[in-house]
């Protein structure tokens, strides 16, 4: 399963990127607008939620627990420097999807205990966008983590993130990782909708 993380370029807005993703067949969208205020994000999130509802897609927002609650989004993704998962769970209640970023198996165990519903695990490789302080996992890192999760019977979905390109996807899914989160690749393509379709096809062999 593929999670699309919104982004923007000189040509396209956050909402454009979400429209492309949905039109290309993606059904799991994360709105990430680091550095913006909740007031900046609110109207965009509202529109994105409406687009996702029309498409039957799951819509989550990065970091902004209060906004998720206010707008009734499907969930929130919490990075390492965001609100702790247990605290977000108290605010959002049991029916909200909470995802947590993990770099190690220990992070996953902690997130699982704190009631996370999925794990964003990375970075797969070095990226210039974020989390540069965390060690790169690569395929071996994922294999190892998936095995540790199996043994610990932690059955959370785990989504690979961080510098992933279309060509990496089959090998990553081959490690037992259950999903892929993608950001940059879509808008860099000359035809973003077509690129999303292509990538969706790769994840569904």
């Amino acid at each position: 399963m593929l999670q699309f993380i919104s982004h923007y370029t000189d040509r396209y807005t956050y909402l454009d990127s979400i429209r492309f993703a949905l039109e290309g067949g993606c059904r799991w969208v994360q709105l990430r607008m680091k550095g913006a205020t909740d007031d900046d994000v609110r109207p965009i999130a509202r529109e994105a939620l409406s687009l996702c509802r029309q498409a039957g897609a799951t819509f989550i927002i990065d970091d902004r627990v209060a906004l998720v609650k206010e707008l009734g989004a499907d969930g929130v993704h919490l990075g390492k420097n965001d609100m702790p998962i247990a605290e977000a769970r108290q605010l959002l209640g049991p029916n909200c999807i909470i995802g947590g970023t993990a770099n190690t198996f220990a992070d996953i165990v902690a997130h699982h205990r704190a009631s996370a519903n999925y794990i964003g695990c990375g970075p797969f490789r070095f990226t210039t966008t974020k989390d540069n302080l965390s060690p790169v996992l690569g395929l071996d890192g994922y294999r190892h983590i998936v095995e540790q999760m199996r043994q610990a019977r932690i059955d959370l979905p785990i989504v690979a993130i961080g510098g992933i390109t279309a060509g990496d996807i089959p090998a990553i899914l081959g490690t037992g990782i259950t999903g892929i989160a993608l950001s940059g690749a879509i808008l860099r393509a000359s035809d973003p909708v077509k690129e999303m379709k292509r990538i969706i096809n790769i994840t569904q062999p």
């Binding site: 399963m1 799951t58 499907d74 999807i97 899914l173 259950t178 999903g179 969706i200 569904q204």
Partner: peptide, 10 residues
């Protein structure tokens, strides 16, 4: 609050 995929297809 549930999303389901079968063989990676939502």
């Amino acid at each position: 609050g549930v999303a389901v995929a079968v063989n990676n297809a939502m």
